[in-house]
């Protein structure tokens, strides 16, 4: 068995250690004897997403945003929309998550069109939402808790076409107002969770892997791993934030 993982825009969407998610996915596959191949698709890459199993998109700096938009509008947007509809497993964090939505509007009203793969939009706020946070995933995902670090000024609102990824227990989440965090549509998981997200939420990492493996190979039983350190990191942050382990 083998998974082909695409790291989309590693050259500009590479903030806050989000690349650690890729490291986490490939190591957890390797420890189970499953091969993986990571394909980096930076700005200007003509490579196709079609035969990939899992796409990861991280967060980035405002400074490079225009470079990114130009590239998206050269056809990558259409390709991403098609991949999402086709059931591609996608993890998108922060800027990458916003980018999958319909648009971003700055707090002074300037609108910037994104790719519209997910029915959501983001509006810039003056105050940044920063800090360690905790949310609980929807019951359909087993109700697991996720810890991480959020750092965003955009407030994301979900349309009717997508479900929230989870409910905020501590922190801000999508917008600090409606108690939702992230979005889920088909096999796309988007949220604000830096940290990076996957290493200290190993159950979530395995959820992505089994989703991608199931799509490629029909069914996927993942052998259990010794996650004592990962769970310790997870549980300590849950405790610090006053949640129940």
């Amino acid at each position: 068995m083998k998974l082909k993982i695409c790291h989309l825009y590693p050259d500009v969407l590479n903030l806050y250690g989000d690349g650690g998610n890729i490291r986490c996915l490939t190591q957890r596959l390797r420890w189970r004897g499953i091969d993986s191949e990571v394909v980096k698709m930076p700005i200007g890459s003509g490579e196709s997403l079609v035969d990939c199993d899992l796409v990861f998109i991280g967060g980035g700096q405002d400074f490079e945003q225009q470079v990114l938009l130009d590239d998206l509008h050269r056809g990558r947007d259409r390709e991403l929309r098609a991949a999402v509809e086709d059931g591609m497993t996608v993890l998108a964090i922060c800027g990458g998550y916003q980018m999958l939505g319909n648009y971003y509007e700055t707090h002074d009203g300037q609108r910037c069109d994104f790719i519209g793969a997910l029915d959501l939009y983001t509006v810039g706020a003056k105050k940044r939402m920063i800090g360690n946070y905790l949310f609980r995933c929807d019951e359909s995902l087993g109700g697991m808790t996720v810890v991480g670090f959020e750092n965003h000024s955009g407030k994301t609102r979900l349309g009717s076409g997508v479900a929230p990824l989870g409910t905020v227990i501590r922190g801000f989440g999508n917008n600090g107002e409606d108690g939702t965090e992230g979005a889920r549509y088909k096999n796309v998981f988007g949220c604000y969770c830096h940290g990076p997200m996957l290493p200290k939420n190993p159950a979530f990492a395995d959820l992505l892997l089994s989703t991608a493996l199931a799509r490629r190979y029909g069914a996927a039983e993942l052998a259990p791993l010794d996650d004592a350190l990962e769970r310790m990191a997870h549980d300590q942050m849950v405790k610090r934030l006053g949640g129940d382990v």
Binding site: G20, R23, M232
Partner: peptide
Amino acid sequence: DRAADMAVRIKYAGVKAEFIEI
């Protein structure tokens, strides 16, 4: 304060867990 996070980082770097102590 974040010893466990550091341990996880080093584990995923490829250092075997038995070489890592908290």
